[in-house]
Design a protein around this nucleic acid. Structure first.
Lengths: 212, 212
DNA sequence: TCTCTTTTTGAACGGTGTTCAATATAATGC
DNA sequence: GCATTATATTGAACACCGTTCAAAAAGAGA
């Protein structure tokens, strides 16, 4: 069949990614298929495979966009909080709240980031893991500001602990697996986590053995 | 075709569940299918659908077993720790370590518990959500012992915060999304979480506003 | 104009979960 | 012991799925 001039390869990539993103606004990825995306943008399944390599890699490209979007939201939330000058913990709380807000407003896109698994120990491509560790770096910088005498490893540990916690709360809450009693919501859990953890974390000028 | 007398329905259920569990010891659920299970136990796909209702519900039955197994592991770990008399926090640490250990040793079964989603807001059956909230109850009991003046809601909150944290650490670590620097492992992150969080949580005889 | 290269395709392959009429057995009533 | 009913089980069919690949048509270069 003919070579079309409708779109360049770049435009086609974006077309496919947009189609998936549009779908994820209202339905989970499990209800989407390569063939549907192809139908939606008016190309054949094979074209998309040529372009991305596989259906999974198309979804991975969508995940990259999602992570970029999450990063933007976090940065914006932290910036706003910093301008209000309510302290570093408030800034981290704002970031966590933004993270939860994104997960709640875009559950299907958010889930896909963590539920997509490439086969048989193909590790994440660097451009993808880079996006995740960039998020951790944002946190580590704030933690160092909060506790200037902390070592880099100390901050790295703490960043992973608190973000795993925030992430776990978001995950389980979206899946309705927290069985929250009325009146307690995610934002309160997040604040409880950050407040209690960081209060004690800051107390020690030298990290305890468990933070090496 | 004939009604067989090879197995009763109960035996058949167990046969199917065992087949899935056996598979999950070495490969993820995404590489398994209803037809494979049927082939493995020598019945037709339709028989399994008659028995469980759908493939998803078969997997859900497997998840119930997994959760029972996790509960047993947690109870055993806490019992051992209690006999060593090292305190309530150590007991909770032992439970968290057991949780992580199970996830690490049985990653595919563990993942399936949280990655299986039933369609279109069919909520989890009660016998399933009951198993999860029973796990929370274990924690709440220990937290009340740790801080006798805490309210039930206070303990419920704290249990959810720390277990979301432990769960998040397990999830992200299994997915290689934590990018731990050398020398820091999951057990240290878990201990850091529990120590710092609970130390400050216990400080307040009245819970702060964020713990309501 | 005639190649050569590149993009795109439709058809095919081997899989998937699920439905359902047909069926052979077991249980029941006589 | 026989006829009937009820039930467990099936294979074939359905509508999908991701992926492969030879064929073909359009553009680029000579």
């Amino acid at each position: 069949m003919p070579r079309r001039q409708d779109h360049t390869q770049e435009e086609l990539r974006q077309l496919a990614i947009d189609s998936v993103s549009r779908h994820l606004r209202s339905a989970p990825a499990s209800q989407l298929s390569l063939r549907m995306v192809a139908r939606d943008i008016g190309y054949s399944p094979g074209t998309l495979i040529n372009l991305f390599g596989s259906y999974s890699l198309l979804l991975l490209a969508v995940n990259a966009c999602t992570l970029d979007c999450i990063r933007d939201q976090l940065l914006q939330a932290m910036d706003n909080s910093r301008r209000a000058d309510a302290g570093v913990i408030a800034e981290l709380e704002a970031a966590a709240a933004a993270y939860f807000h994104y997960a709640q407003e875009n559950p299907h896109a958010w889930r896909l980031v963590f539920e997509l698994h490439l086969d048989a120990e193909t590790p994440l491509p660097a451009w993808q893991s880079g996006r995740i560790s960039a998020l951790f770096s944002l946190l580590e910088a704030r933690l160092l500001k909060l506790k200037p005498r902390a070592t880099a490893a100390d901050c790295a540990s703490a960043a992973r602990v608190i973000w795993s916690g925030v992430h776990g709360i978001c995950t389980l809450l979206l899946d309705n697996k927290l069985f929250l009693s009325d009146g307690a919501d995610a934002r309160q859990l997040i604040r409880s986590l950050l407040t209690h953890y960081l209060t004690d974390w800051c107390r020690h000028t030298q990290p305890p053995a468990s933070d090496q």
